[in-house]
Design a protein around this nucleic acid. Structure first.
Lengths: 230, 230
DNA sequence: TCAAAAGTGTTCGCTATACACCCATGG
DNA sequence: CCATGGGTGTATAGCGAACACTTTTGA
């Protein structure tokens, strides 16, 4: 502990990136948590995260964390808040730049990380290490607000999906209920959906049509500036 | 440079808070800038900001900056993004937690700070130091989005104001134009405005009614959850 | 008397919402 | 034949957008 190689005239906080990784299984919104293997909070569940390297941006750091945990390297990821309470880490002053990521559950392979990782639905989240409860709650709020400006939901769905799944997703994110017919009408009216030829046997008795996200149309709309009404 | 008193096993970035301070003069949205007195970027205009103290949160740091520059200690202030590009400060690695503040121009006394400070309208902003151009642009975008969830505009207006001023403000923030009658209709319909008895001679020829923000009603609506449509 | 600002209402079209019946399938 | 899930259409109400004339007053 005598070999502290990095010295400054003024005290500097440590900086980490944390990542709230959201996934969707067709009915429920889920979050990936890691069981901590070391103190502090050993054995508790926590958000994936780690120290920012000196030559990477927070965005790159968060992507790195995400890849370590999920093997994904092209996910949607967005910084939403930086948490700075002086006492939030018992070891030293640590501020964390928090992100949320949206991933397709189907594409997630287990992470490299030896760490214990598990997906939790939003209503079975255990108490978390540090101030991660608060970070998670705020991630949910920010995602909920974001959906009014970007069709973020499509980042969570597979290539093709059913209208029912899309509605489940919006309902899970916004925590509201929509009328089935009105929801479909509105979604089609936005023009962001393409109907495919394919059907899928969704459950015991019925098959349903598969949809696809119209990215070209979205990019076009984004140019002009638009709002998603929900 | 030998007396570096603060040492760590791993390199730590320096952390600052920067503050985009918005004001409104009845017609135009303005931003408070500081002329830098020291290198780097000496003589250039920049956002007010400074190093985060080890015992304060970013919010407290931003409030402190704000008070130094404007003498205000109760303004609306909100963190919106943390900028982390490794090269953004030529001296050392500095990340900055950026905030925007909304203040009432009438209440701003000159700051304590000896620094040269000036209000600029949004279309006369000079090139700024560091990456502050980018920070300012993003502040504007975030404020624009925020107004869909909170009636932030009232933070920028005096206690009483005219419908014209309110409309000017919304038009300045959103960079759009509204029909005068439809705008008034919509605002009254939200129920967030109280008509006062008073009139004011706003300009050459005519007097107009003064309005007041209905904070109780707003708090009530916020409880239930609501959206501001624009 | 002209120019500038403010006050005021109506119409039209669209969208949001509420709502019910039919069909196909598997058990 | 029953239960489940998916598909489909209509009627109503409310909101958003477009739009013009009158009044006041100071220059």
């Amino acid at each position: 502990m005598e070999t502290k190689k990095y010295s400054y005239d003024y005290p500097h906080p440590a900086v980490t990136t944390d990542c709230v990784i959201f996934g969707f299984d067709g009915s429920d919104l889920k979050v990936l948590l890691i069981e901590r293997g070391i103190e502090p909070f050993k054995g508790k569940w926590a958000l994936p995260g780690g120290f920012l390297k000196m030559d990477e941006t927070a965005h790159e750091g968060a992507l790195r964390e995400l890849e370590e945990e999920t093997g994904m390297n092209n996910a949607y990821i967005r910084q939403f808040h930086t948490f700075t309470e002086p006492g939030r880490d018992p070891r030293e002053r640590v501020i964390t730049i928090a992100h949320y990521a949206l991933v397709r559950l189907q594409e997630v392979k287990g992470g490299d990380d030896a760490a214990q990782a598990r997906w939790f639905t939003m209503d079975e989240i255990p108490p978390l290490a540090f101030d991660h409860d608060r970070i998670l709650r705020m991630a949910q709020i920010m995602l909920r607000e974001r959906i009014h400006f970007e069709p973020v939901g499509f980042e969570l769905l597979p290539e093709t999906f059913t209208m029912k799944q899309l509605q489940n997703l919006y309902e899970a994110i916004l925590d509201v209920h929509f009328d089935r017919r009105n929801f479909a009408k509105k979604m089609f009216h936005l023009g962001l959906l393409i109907q495919t030829e394919d059907m899928v046997r969704t459950s015991p008795k019925r098959e349903s049509q598969l949809l696809r996200f119209n990215k070209e149309k979205y990019d076009e709309l984004k140019q002009k500036g638009f709002r998603l009404e929900f």
